[in-house]
């Protein structure tokens, strides 16, 4: 259940940015969560509401932008889609592949007032 910790980290960032960006309330938050980031979106949503309660992001809407997993296959010399870290290349069967996208978890933007 480290989704709870992730939400606590998100809240810290929101509070840290509040002074710098001059806002007192967060209405919507957009997160980019990669398919390979090991984050369960449902668990994140569940934790989000309880962690944000009574904070500057109380009742904030959570928008999760899914980022597809992508890896570079050295045999095919191109990027290919993957669903798991250990996936083989869907075209030639080669592995291991080098992950190029989908392992990030980022706060992208906020709607604030």
């Amino acid at each position: 259940m480290h989704e709870m910790s992730l939400c606590e980290n998100i809240l810290q960032t929101l509070q840290q940015q509040a002074n710098a960006q001059q806002y007192s309330k967060v209405k919507t938050i957009w997160l980019e969560i990669g398919e390979l980031a090991g984050v369960e979106a449902d668990a994140l949503r569940f934790s989000f509401d309880s962690v944000m309660q009574d904070s500057i992001a109380d009742q904030a809407r959570l928008e999760i932008i899914d980022i597809a997993g992508q890896a570079y296959c050295s045999h095919c010399a191109k990027n290919v889609p993957i669903q798991q870290r250990y996936d083989a290349c869907p075209e030639c069967g080669h592995f291991p592949l080098q992950i190029v996208a989908g392992d990030q978890m980022r706060i992208k933007q906020l709607e604030v007032e």
């Binding site: 980290n9 960032t13 940015q17 990030q104 933007q109 709607e111 604030v112």
Partner: peptide, 16 residues
Amino acid sequence: SPARMVQIEQDILAKN
């Protein structure tokens, strides 16, 4: 409207 967008572009675990 006082509502506006703020770009953050920060890793969730930036603080850790």
